[in-house]
Simulated assay, not measured.
Amino acid sequence: MLRAELTGLVTTTATKVTAAVAVVGLIVTQLAFVTLMPALADGDIGPGLDALGSDFPVLDLAARAVQLDALNPLGASMGSGSIGVALLAITLLGVLAGTSDDRYGGIVGAVLASPKRFRIVAAKAGAVALVGAALGVVLALVSLVTLVITLAATGTPFVLGLPDLAARFGLGVLAVTALSVIGLAVGLIVRTQLAGVLTMIGILILEPIAVSSIQLITGGIVPVWTQFLPVALAQGVIHGGTDGLGPSVVILALVALTAALTAAASAALARRDI
């Protein structure tokens, strides 16, 4: 069943389009944050830092922390709750995988082949996880290539070692894989494709809005629970932890959230009339 789900997933146009959008979106994001913004700050292009104002972010590409931040398969950003095209595409890949059977009637054949519906969810989750992991590797490579080209063009040394690259790549792939499976779970729970897409987009957009609103209300104090939201957890995994949570905690939390949503999707499918 896993092979059938995987074959169906990789051969559909929706998967190819969302993967392509993720890659293109990441390239544009990386060029903006890793290449364009430092060039503007240094005055290599544009009016110069004085004209841009003191609030314009200045990134030292020679710093290890900045280079690590640039190696982000979700796209470099100014905040842990920020969303981008790559993030949207990754989660929507899962949503489309979870709703396509209902839309085209494939769920009937799947249920007849395997009456135990948790196996259907497990097979779908496995297929989406494999595709998500492969996409995560591609996105990680894109972020690395963008950084290397930018550093070479500016004559900036690459200061990251192999352990840094291995850790960031592994954590990035884990985050992308988890987000794609979360998208699958949302799609299976919501069932219809349009509702699933709108629900997923709403969740991703509302998270940073909610966090920013809470910061305004509390005078900059962010409750701990906001660090357990999907985007914050994924970014926390990639960056090796958050301000209040260690790397092992955010990894376990993201895995637990993914497992809980997958279990909820399995329960929803088990109660559903086909």
Score class of each variant (00 low, 15 high):
residue 91 T to C: 14
residue 73 P to W: 02
residue 108 V to N: 03
residue 54 S to C: 00
residue 75 G to L: 11
residue 73 P to Y: 03
residue 90 I to S: 05
residue 111 V to L: 11
residue 108 V to M: 09
residue 131 V to R: 01
residue 87 L to A: 09
residue 74 L to R: 01
residue 70 A to Y: 10
residue 120 I to A: 03
residue 98 G to Y: 10
residue 95 V to R: 08
residue 73 P to G: 00
residue 132 G to T: 03
residue 140 A to K: 02
residue 107 I to Q: 02
residue 116 K to P: 00
residue 108 V to I: 11
residue 111 V to S: 01
residue 54 S to D: 15
residue 127 A to H: 02
residue 72 N to T: 09
residue 119 R to G: 14
residue 120 I to H: 02
residue 128 V to I: 06
residue 104 Y to V: 11
residue 79 G to L: 11
residue 133 A to R: 04
residue 83 I to C: 01
residue 66 V to E: 14
residue 64 R to H: 15
residue 117 R to K: 08
residue 97 A to E: 10
residue 73 P to I: 05
residue 117 R to F: 00
residue 95 V to W: 12
residue 69 D to R: 13
residue 108 V to R: 15
residue 77 S to H: 13
residue 123 A to K: 00
residue 123 A to D: 07
residue 88 L to G: 13
residue 125 A to I: 07
residue 85 V to I: 15
residue 93 L to W: 12
residue 100 S to Y: 12
residue 93 L to Y: 13
residue 71 L to Y: 07
residue 57 P to C: 08
residue 61 L to H: 05
residue 78 M to N: 05
residue 86 A to E: 03
residue 111 V to K: 03
residue 65 A to F: 09
residue 138 V to E: 05
residue 61 L to S: 00
residue 136 G to F: 04
residue 68 L to G: 08
residue 67 Q to S: 08
residue 78 M to S: 14
residue 140 A to M: 15
residue 60 D to N: 14
residue 122 A to N: 01
residue 127 A to F: 01
residue 131 V to M: 06
residue 56 F to Q: 05
residue 126 G to R: 04
residue 128 V to P: 09
residue 115 P to Y: 02
residue 67 Q to F: 09
residue 54 S to T: 13
residue 85 V to K: 01
residue 100 S to K: 13
residue 68 L to F: 06
residue 103 R to G: 09
residue 128 V to Q: 07
residue 101 D to R: 14
residue 107 I to K: 01
residue 139 L to I: 12
residue 131 V to E: 04
residue 61 L to P: 04
residue 68 L to N: 05
residue 53 G to R: 09
residue 134 A to Y: 01
residue 62 A to H: 03
residue 57 P to E: 04
residue 67 Q to V: 04
residue 125 A to C: 06
residue 57 P to Y: 08
residue 120 I to N: 07
residue 79 G to W: 04
residue 137 V to W: 11
residue 56 F to E: 08
residue 131 V to L: 07
